[in-house]
Structure formats: C-alpha cells, structure tokens
Amino acid sequence: MTAYVLRRLAQLVPVLFIASIGIFAMIYAVPGGPVGIMLGENANQAEIDALVHDLGLDRPIAIQYFDWLGSAVTGDFGVSLHSREPVIKLIGERLPATLQLAAVATLIAVLLGIPVALASALHPGSWLDRMLSGWSALALGVPTFWLGILLILLFAVELRWLPSASRYVPLWEDPLEALRHLIMPAATLGVYVSGVLARFLRASLVSQLGADYVRTARSKGLSRGRIVRVHVMRNALLPFITVIGLMMATFIGGAVVTEAVFTYPGLGRMLIQAISTRDYPLIQGCIIVMLVIYVAINLTVDVLYAYVDPRIEYS
C-alpha cells in the first residue's frame, strides 16, 4: 500500500514540476516582465536597474526558479503588489470562506445527486427517469452565473428574504446568519455539481444493474432491495470514485464563478480581482493553492480507489 502511494506521488512529480515552471514563467511572459509589472510603464532606467538587482533578476533564470520554488514550497509566495501584504496571509484570510462554501455545496450536491441517480437508474426509461435525466441536464446546462442571477432576482430583489451580496460568516459563530449568506451560493454550486454526480452515477448504476452477477444474485432468490444495496451499490460506486476528480475540477471552476456572482469573499473572487489589477504574486499564489488542493484530492481519491477495489494490486 505504501509503495502504491509512493508510486502515485512519484507520478505527480513531473506534472507538478512542469506546472510550477509554467506558473513561475507567467510573470516573465507578461509584456514588460516582472519589473514592468512592479514599476508600471513610466519608470526610469535607474529605478529599473535597482529593482532588477534587488530582486535578483540579474541571476541565471534557473537559480531564480529554484529560489522561487524553494520559497513557494515553504508557503512564501511573495508580497501582493496591490496591498503590500504577504500573499500567504491574504490567502489564509480567504481560504476558510471558500472551504465553507465548498463543504455546504458538496452536501447539497450529494443529497440531491445520489437520490436522483438511484431513482432514475432503478426505473430506466420510465417517465421518472426521463424527468430526472432532464433535471440533471438542466443542472449541468444552466450556467452557474445565470442560475445565481435568477436566484438573486427571486430571493433578494423580489422576495427580499436573502442578501444579494454574501458575506462570510463562519458557521460555528452564527449558524443562522451564516446560512442566510451561504444558502444561495451553495445551492447554485451544489445544484451544478449534483448534475455531474447524477449523470455519472446513473450511468454507472445502469451498467451494473445489467451485469451478469446481478442475474446470478436474482437466481439465488435475493430481493431486489438487497441486490441493489449489497451487490450493485458497491460495484457502481467504485468507478464513480474516479469521477470525483472530474467533479472537483468543475467544483473549483464553479466556485470561482459562483463567488463572483454573489460577491462572496473567497479565494476565487480574490483571484479574479488579482487578475484585473495584474497582481501577479497574488495570482501565482492563488493558482498554486488551488492546484495543490485539486491534486491532493485527486491523489486521495486514487489511493482510496485502490484500497477499496480488491482487483487492484498495489504491490
């Protein structure tokens, strides 16, 4: 098992290495380079030279890279050009908000997606199945930012039940107030992810329900309920685990957009603001943190999969 985890980690190394080079190179690919970014376009040559030396930009590029990488690994992404605060501190302030949004959205997605998938897979081709498949198509097809706007129109503008701009209130401090601010963004994101979840899980369930071993189980005299619970669910959820990685991608992307719709003070919104103010250290920091979260989740999922499936030998 340990060997398997190590092997998966080793496979990640080249990917992360190339990705880090890409993120590092971003700042150099921008017209004007790092100096132009920091000083603006009207700087004189003396200022430029001083800064180049201060930042060590006159050293070989490889040295600069490893220097940067070394700092990044320890969590030092530099200082925001805009607020002059350490990037890691800014991220630390915003991350809890995004994690809270993600947690509640996941809950909604699972509570919505799994029953929908089950109900439609158990009656393939029925009106219920058609209706629920239509629902998942809608959940997937309606852009989160439009759904968010519609929700704001209804609940904030028309009914005035909920705030149109969401603040971050930690759930454990004031659960009710937190939910008032969280429910619309979490629902927007959760509905979208539930669509992904329902569609894949339904496909997985339908194919497992048609498998030979289900016929064998029936020939043993097992009830349909037991066959689904004991035999089908395990087999259907297994390939589904691999889909979680894909779901995470839509999740992170969805979070960036959702936070923008509800002006929710999370990591994604900070990234967008950083892009519009061309705050490159902050952009780099946000992307690296999201990348690490995404990769870590995918790795966990892979290892979990190998652990649960007896057919995979991790020797």
């Binding site: 030979d212 071993y213 064998t216 020939s219 005299g221 009830s223 035999h231 087999n235 007896p310």
Partner: peptide, 28 residues
Amino acid sequence: GEEALRAVRGREIGMIFQDPATTLNPLM
C-alpha cells in the same frame, strides 16, 4: 409473483450460467 419466485429460486431451482468470469460479484 416476485415474492413466490424468490422462494423458488435457489431453494427449488439452482442456476448455473455460461461465463464464470462475470457471473460472480467481483467485490464480494
């Protein structure tokens, strides 16, 4: 009905299928 059939299956009639590679649940 389904209930009566379940009582028959396994106890009265045993089934053996063609492809042993797929007739058993791989995760049990």
